[in-house]
Simulated scan of single mutants.
Amino acid sequence: MIAQLVTSYIASAAFGIIFNVPRNTLIQCGFVGMMGWLVYVALVRSDTNAIVATLAAAFFVTVISRVFARLYKTPIIVFSVAGIIPLVPGGMAYDAMRSFVENDYNLAVQLAAKAFMISGSIAAGLIFSEVMNQLFKRPKV
């Protein structure tokens, strides 16, 4: 578990470097990715579906990203993009393509569908968090 957290931290911070984020936000980018991965792993280990766990983790990543964006006066995208990197199902998409090449179409379709649903849950979690923020931030009429 500790190795996964350290790896997710490094991956998120490294993608921050690739995306050319301000150097003073690299530590926070790594932290956001690590916390998102922690939520995901905790939910999956408690027998939650991977798609629901990814949705919750993406929601959490956006919440933390919004807090850091306010604290460090930086656009939210700096933290949210780096934070979702550990959640992206790249390995699963690779396995799906490999199964297609190996003519194992049943497994390929299953893996591709799951990768697509996980990717969609990342997008839905980001959007849902932003909608919730707008609802609570909305001026009273």
Rank of each mutant, 00 (worst) to 15 (best):
residue 41 V to D: 14
residue 73 K to L: 11
residue 89 P to K: 03
residue 54 T to H: 01
residue 82 A to V: 06
residue 95 D to W: 07
residue 77 I to W: 11
residue 98 R to S: 11
residue 17 I to G: 05
residue 16 G to I: 05
residue 9 Y to A: 07
residue 25 T to S: 08
residue 43 L to W: 01
residue 70 R to E: 14
residue 128 F to V: 15
residue 12 S to F: 06
residue 80 S to V: 13
residue 69 A to F: 01
residue 35 M to S: 11
residue 138 R to C: 11
residue 23 R to C: 07
residue 44 V to G: 00
residue 76 I to F: 03
residue 131 V to L: 15
residue 63 V to E: 10
residue 127 I to W: 10
residue 39 V to S: 05
residue 113 A to V: 15
residue 43 L to A: 06
residue 63 V to C: 14
residue 123 A to C: 13
residue 34 M to L: 13
residue 36 G to T: 06
residue 73 K to S: 14
residue 40 Y to A: 01
residue 38 L to I: 11
residue 78 V to G: 00
residue 83 G to E: 10
residue 119 S to D: 08
residue 78 V to Q: 00
residue 10 I to M: 09
residue 68 F to C: 06
residue 73 K to V: 09
residue 76 I to S: 12
residue 43 L to K: 03
residue 26 L to I: 05
residue 73 K to A: 13
residue 31 F to N: 02
residue 33 G to D: 05
residue 36 G to V: 04
residue 24 N to R: 13
residue 42 A to N: 14
residue 9 Y to T: 02
residue 51 I to T: 08
residue 115 A to K: 01
residue 15 F to S: 01
residue 12 S to A: 11
residue 82 A to R: 04
residue 64 I to K: 06
residue 4 Q to C: 09
residue 72 Y to K: 15
residue 43 L to P: 04
residue 10 I to V: 12
residue 4 Q to T: 13
residue 91 G to P: 00
residue 22 P to S: 10
residue 112 A to N: 05
residue 120 G to M: 04
residue 19 F to Y: 14
residue 76 I to W: 01
residue 3 A to G: 09
residue 1 M to E: 09
residue 61 V to H: 07
residue 29 C to G: 02
residue 81 V to T: 07
residue 79 F to G: 00
residue 123 A to P: 06
residue 26 L to S: 01
residue 141 V to W: 12
residue 114 K to L: 12
residue 119 S to P: 09
residue 6 V to N: 11
residue 10 I to C: 09
residue 13 A to P: 03
residue 100 F to G: 00
residue 57 A to W: 03
residue 26 L to H: 00
residue 69 A to P: 03
residue 26 L to M: 02
residue 108 A to L: 01
residue 90 G to M: 04
residue 46 S to V: 08
residue 118 I to T: 05
residue 98 R to F: 12
residue 17 I to C: 07
residue 46 S to T: 12
residue 34 M to V: 10
residue 55 L to H: 03
residue 35 M to Q: 08
residue 14 A to C: 10
residue 6 V to W: 11
residue 106 N to V: 11
residue 80 S to A: 14
residue 107 L to M: 14
residue 18 I to T: 09
residue 140 K to I: 15
residue 75 P to Y: 00
residue 20 N to Q: 15
residue 137 K to G: 14
residue 42 A to C: 13
residue 71 L to H: 05
residue 45 R to Y: 15
residue 94 Y to A: 00
residue 9 Y to C: 06
residue 86 P to T: 08
residue 135 L to R: 11
residue 25 T to C: 05
